[in-house]
Simulated assay, not measured.
Amino acid sequence: MTAHHETYLKSPSLPAMGLGALWPSAGWNSREGFPTFSFIWRDYQISTDLISALRRLAGRDDEVTTERLQLLAPHVSGFRLTLAMLMHPDWPLPVWQALQLRNRLIRNGAIKVAYPSDLIARATAWRVHDKGIELDIHAQLLQDDDCPWESVTTFYYRGRFAPPLNYGPLEGATAVSPSVNPDLAPVAHWTVDGDHRLRFARLTGDCNPLHLIDAYARRTGFAAASAHPQRIAAQCLGHLTLSQPPRQLDLWLKGPVYYNRGVTLRQTHSAEGEEFALWVDGDERAAMVGRLS
């Protein structure tokens, strides 16, 4: 495996990331696998403006909801570092083939807001299946000598990649999501607001036009532009019934959540935590499933 280490002293530049994504990809080499990348963002901070924006999306600003949103916040603004890795010219597969599949967000201690921190992202594991590759990106938030937050984001590249190759342990959310009964009484129903799409795209660094432009999304086979998963997760966290601040949030991303469409949220309790699922009105399959534990 090739190795590459990069340090950012400020937020990775969107234009530079876009240029990297346009560079021809080398393609999958089963002997090499994914490269050993270690990307570091020095002086990364969870801004108070970000927390305020997530509170507005959640529609609540009570203490428990804020604790939940602090678990999500580094996955919003810190997602740019992961994208910088996937859009690097030396990355073997193009970023537009990468589908965000699952998230595991872990809180290990008190997360400080507006505090100079280091954010580190690494490609840690992958699994070759019959019809694609699952890739795990491990991110860690370092504040002084502590690591109060970490995440594992699993991406999926469709295609056939031979011979089969597994590397690294499965440390993210499990492949099988919880099952939430669609006949449960709804916790909430709302219409996904289509405003401020570009503003949220800049927060995450994910400026994929599928999240921004309805006409583009329709030309590629979708019903309309769809919201970023982090945006929908913030709304779900605001509508769930109150509970103790969670230590872990697992998310399974099943399908697009279109702007200006109604959605229905249902919640249940299991021995593993509070489980929830979100349906786009008219769809039988949940678009997002989650577990707070």
Rank of each mutant, 00 (worst) to 15 (best):
W149N: 01
L105P: 00
E32R: 13
A271H: 09
P148D: 10
Q100M: 12
G290E: 01
A16D: 11
A287T: 05
A110F: 12
D62C: 00
P15F: 07
Q235D: 07
P148S: 08
E284C: 09
D214I: 08
T220P: 04
R122Y: 09
T154N: 08
T82S: 14
L240P: 07
D250F: 05
A3K: 08
F37R: 08
Q70I: 14
C236F: 04
L14H: 13
T204C: 04
A287Q: 10
L22F: 07
K131W: 08
W149E: 01
G27Y: 00
W41G: 07
A224G: 14
P116M: 05
H138P: 09
K112T: 09
A234Y: 07
D195A: 12
L292Q: 02
H4R: 15
D49N: 12
P92H: 10
A121Q: 06
A53I: 07
P116A: 05
P256S: 03
S11A: 14
D283Q: 12
I51T: 11
D130A: 15
G27I: 03
Y216E: 04
F276Y: 07
G27S: 03
H129I: 07
A21N: 04
A277D: 00
L212Q: 06
A185M: 12
D49C: 13
R56W: 11
P182S: 06
E275M: 03
R231Y: 06
T268G: 14
A227F: 03
V180L: 00
L212T: 01
R31W: 08
